[in-house]
Design a protein around this nucleic acid. Structure first.
Length: 640
DNA sequence: GTAGGGTTAG
C-alpha cells in the first residue's frame, strides 16, 4: 500500500506504538524490546524511548548485550550520550555489537577519549574490531592527533585482515592526513587494491592541507568519478591556500545548468570565504541569491558564513541582517563569534561588547575566539578598562584559557592607549614566550606614540622572530628618520639587505559592477584610464589645502608605510584605486577599497579629505581592520 | 559506516 503523504505524515513504528506503551497493562515479550527501541530513533521519539526504558525497568528486566546495543543507538540518535554511556557501562557481558554501538556514539559526538577508552576495553576483553569499529576509532584518533596510536591501530586492522577494507583504508588515509602524515596516507592510497571516490577525496584533502595545491588538482583531474565532496574539497582547499580566484572558477563551473554535480550547502559555506578574501561584494551577493534560489541558505552554518562574507566585504549592515535572520535558538557559538569579530574589525567596540553580553544572556558559553574578537573590539574603540576587565574575567568567570593571541590583544589595547609601560609589563608577566604578534603590537604602539625606546626594544625581538617581515624594518626606519637619526636609518637598511628581506609591494583593489580592478603603487600604465586618474590626483593637493589641509612635512617625507620609498605618496595604490572609483561611479556611491598592507598615514589623511571634498563614503579594508571615511573623518579616530 | 565546513590578535 502506498502512503498518502499529503493526507498525513507517515507514522513511524514509534508513533504507532506510543499509545500501547502508555498503558501499563501491556506486557511485551522481552525479545520485542530491541525492535521497538530500534524504531525510536531521533530526537522527536526520545520521550517514547525513555518511557520504554522505564517500562522495562519496572518489569525488572535487565537488558541483554543485544538489547543494550539497541538502547545505546537509540540514545545516541538524539545526542543523549551520557545515557548511552550509562547503559554501556552497566551492561554485564558486552558484545562486539554493543562495543560498536558505543564507539560509534562516542566518536560521532566527538567524545574522543571515551571512544579510545571503549576501544581499549574491547581489545583487552579479546574482541576483534570489524569494519564498523575501525572507522570510528580512527576518527577519534585523528581528532586527538594520536599518530603513534593510529599506527598501532593500522597494524591491528592488518591482523584482522581489514586494512584494505574500503571504509577502513579510507579512514586510515583520513587519520594520517589529519595527523600530518601525508607520506603514510599516500603510500596506503597507492597500495589499495580498490579505491572509491572517498579514498580519492581523503587524499585530495591531505594535499590541500599540506599546501600542495597542484598535486591536489592533479588528483582531482585524474580521478575516475567526482562527487560533491570532491568539488567542495577543491573549493575549500583553494580558498584556504589563498587561491580565491581558482575557488570561484570551480564554483562557477559546477553552478552551470548542465553540471552533473550541483553545489549543496557545504559548497556554499566553503565558497563564501573566498568572496570575503577578495572583498568581492557583488560576487558574494550573487552567491547569496543563488543559495536563496536553491533553498541552500537556511542552514545556520551558511548564514554564519554569510555574516563573515559581508563583514569582510565591508557591508556591516548586511552582516547584521544575516545575523538577525538566524533563528535565536540556532545561533551557535560560531555565529556569535563571527558577529562579535565583525563589529571589532569595523571598529565598533561598543557593539561588540553589547553582542557579547547578549550571547551570555542567551546561554552560550564563550571560547577563546570570542575573546579575541571582544578584546580587539575594545582595543579599536579605546575601551581600555572594559577590555582589561574582560581579560580578567576570562579565567575568573568563564574559565577560558588565556592564550598568546589574547595577550597580543591586551598589549595592543594598552599600547594604543599610550600605556606603553604597562603593556611591556604584561609581556614580561606572560606565562608563555611572547611571539611576533605580541611584539608587533608593542612596536605599533611605540610608533603611534613616538616612543623610540619601546619601538626599538620590540623591533629587536621581531628582527629575530620574523626577519623576513619587511614591515618591521620600515616602521622602525621611519621612526629613526623622523627623529633625524640618519646613521641608524643607514644601519637598518644594511641589516635588511643582509637578511635579504624582500619588499612587500603594496597593492589595492576596488570592485566596480562586479569586476575587480587592481592597482600597484606607482602604476602608470596598467589602466585605460590612467590619465583621468592622475588628473584627479594632481588636483587633489590644491583642493585639500582649500579645504583646510595643513601639510605636515616630516610626516609626508618619511612616513611612507611599507610601500616602496621611491614611489611617491601621490601614487600609493589605495589612492589610485579610490581615484579610479571616483571617476567610474556616479556621485554618492560608496567606494570600497581593499589594501594588502597597513594603510599609510598620508593616505589616511588624504582619504579623509577626499570623503569631504567629493562627498563620498569610502570604506577601506587594510590588513588589520576597516576604516570608514565619511565627511572628513575616519571611524578609527586616527588611531590604528 | 569512510571523504568536504562557517569564527582567531599586530
Amino acid at each position: 500500500m502506498k502512503w498518502d503523504h499529503k493526507a498525513s505524515p507517515r507514522p513511524t513504528m514509534g508513533t504507532l506504538l506510543e499509545p500501547l506503551f502508555n498503558s501499563s497493562q501491556l506486557l511485551v515479550q522481552p525479545s520485542c524490546y530491541a525492535a521497538v527501541f530500534q524504531s525510536f530513533t531521533g530526537k522527536s521519539l526520545l520521550k517514547q524511548g525513555k518511557q520504554l526504558h522505564a517500562h522495562m525497568l519496572l518489569r525488572g528486566l535487565r537488558p541483554t548485550a543485544f538489547l543494550a546495543a539497541k538502547m545505546v543507538a537509540m540514545y545516541a540518535s538524539s545526542g543523549e550520550i551520557s545515557s548511552a554511556s550509562h547503559i554501556f557501562y552497566s551492561a554485564r557481558d558486552p558484545s562486539s555489537l554493543l562495543f560498536n554501538s558505543i564507539i560509534r556514539a562516542f566518536s560521532l559526538y566527538k567524545y574522543s577519549e571515551e571512544t579510545m577508552h571503549a576501544y581499549l576495553r574491547m581489545h583487552s576483553l579479546g574482541f576483534h574490531g570489524d569494519n564498523f569499529t575501525y572507522p570510528f576509532v580512527l576518527k577519534a584518533i585523528a581528532d586527538l592527533y594520536f599518530v603513534h596510536f593510529g599506527k598501532c591501530i593500522h597494524g591491528l586492522s592488518m591482523k584482522d585482515g581489514l586494512d584494505f577494507d574500503i571504509y577502513v583504508a579510507t579512514s586510515l588515509i583520513d587519520m594520517y592526513v589529519k595527523c600530518g602524515e601525508l607520506g603514510d596516507a599516500c603510500r596506503l592510497f597507492d597500495e589499495m587494491p580498490v579505491r572509491d571516490v572517498s579514498s580519492w577525496n581523503a587524499l585530495i584533502s591531505g594535499y590541500m592541507r599540506d599546501g600542495a595545491v597542484d598535486l591536489a588538482r592533479e588528483l582531482f583531474n585524474r580521478m575516475p568519478l567526482k562527487n560533491i565532496v570532491s568539488w567542495t574539497s577543491m573549493i575549500s582547499g583553494y580558498t584556504q591556500n589563498g587561491l580565491a580566484a581558482e575557488a570561484l572558477q570551480l564554483f562557477d563551473e559546477m553552478s552551470k545548468e548542465d553540471s552533473e554535480v550541483k553545489p549543496n550547502w557545504v559548497t556554499i559555506m566553503s565558497i563564501l570565504p573566498a568572496c570575503g578574501y577578495l572583498s568581492a561584494l557583488e560576487k558574494g551577493r550573487k552567491i547569496h541569491s543563488f543559495a536563496q534560489e536553491k533553498g541552500l541558505d537556511s542552514h545556520p552554518s551558511v548564514q554564519t558564513a554569510l555574516i563573515g562574507m559581508y563583514a569582510k566585504c565591508g557591508s556591516l549592515a548586511d552582516a547584521q541582517w544575516c545575523f538577525n535572520g538566524i533563528k535565536p535558538n540556532s545561533r551557535n557559538l560560531v555565529a556569535w563569534n563571527t558577529m562579535i569579530t565583525a563589529y571589532a574589525s569595523h571598529g565598533l567596540g561598543v557593539e561588540a561588547v553589547r553582542t557579547f553580553e547578549h550571547m551570555i544572556q542567551a546561554g552560550i558559553h564563550p571560547d577563546g575566539v570570542t575573546f579575541t574578537g571582544l578584546l580587539a573590539g575594545c582595543s579599536h574603540s579605546g575601551l581600555v578598562d572594559t577590555g582589561l576587565r574582560y581579560f580578567e574575567s576570562m579565567s575568573s568567570v568563564y574559565s577560558v584559557e588565556r592564550k598568546h593571541e589574547h595577550y597580543a590583544c591586551i598589549v595592543d589595547l594598552l599600547g594604543r592607549a599610550g600605556r606603553l609601560v604597562e603593556a611591556y609589563e604584561h609581556i614580561c608577566r606572560m606565562p608563555m614566550q611572547a611571539g611576533a604578534s605580541v611584539w608587533g603590537s608593542l612596536l605599533a604602539a611605540g610608533r603611534c606614540h613616538r616612543n623610540l625606546e619601546i619601538a626599538e626594544l620590540a623591533a629587536k625581538k621581531l628582527f629575530v622572530l620574523e626577519p623576513e617581515n619587511s614591515g618591521n624594518y620600515v616602521l622602525l626606519s621611519n621612526m629613526h628618520a623622523e627623529a633625524g637619526m640618519w646613521e641608524k636609518v643607514k644601519n637598518l637598511r644594511a641589516l635588511q639587505k643582509s637578511q635579504s628581506v624582500k619588499k612587500n609591494p603594496g597593492s589595492s583593489w576596488i570592485e566596480i559592477n562586479g569586476k575587480a580592478h587592481l592597482f600597484h603603487g606607482g602604476d602608470t600604465a596598467s589602466h585605460d584610464q590612467t590619465k583621468e586618474i592622475y588628473l584627479l590626483l594632481e588636483e587633489l593637493p590644491g583642493k585639500m589645502k582649500a579645504a583646510g589641509y595643513i601639510p605636515d612635512t616630516t610626516f609626508a617625507l618619511h612616513d611612507v608605510s611599507e610601500e616602496e620609498k621611491e614611489i611617491s605618496l601621490t601614487t600609493h595604490s589605495e589612492k589610485l584605486a579610490i581615484a579610479f572609483g571616483l571617476v567610474n561611479t556616479s556621485p554618492g556611491t560608496v567606494l570600497r577599497v581593499t589594501k594588502n598592507l597597513r594603510i599609510c598615514g598620508d593616505c589616511h589623511t588624504a582619504i579623509k579629505f577626499i570623503s569631504k571634498i567629493y562627498e563620498r563614503e569610502i570604506i577601506v579594508r587594510d590588513v588589520n581592520r576597516f576604516h570608514h571615511f565619511k565627511e572628513g573623518s575616519c571611524s578609527c579616530g586616527d588611531y590604528w
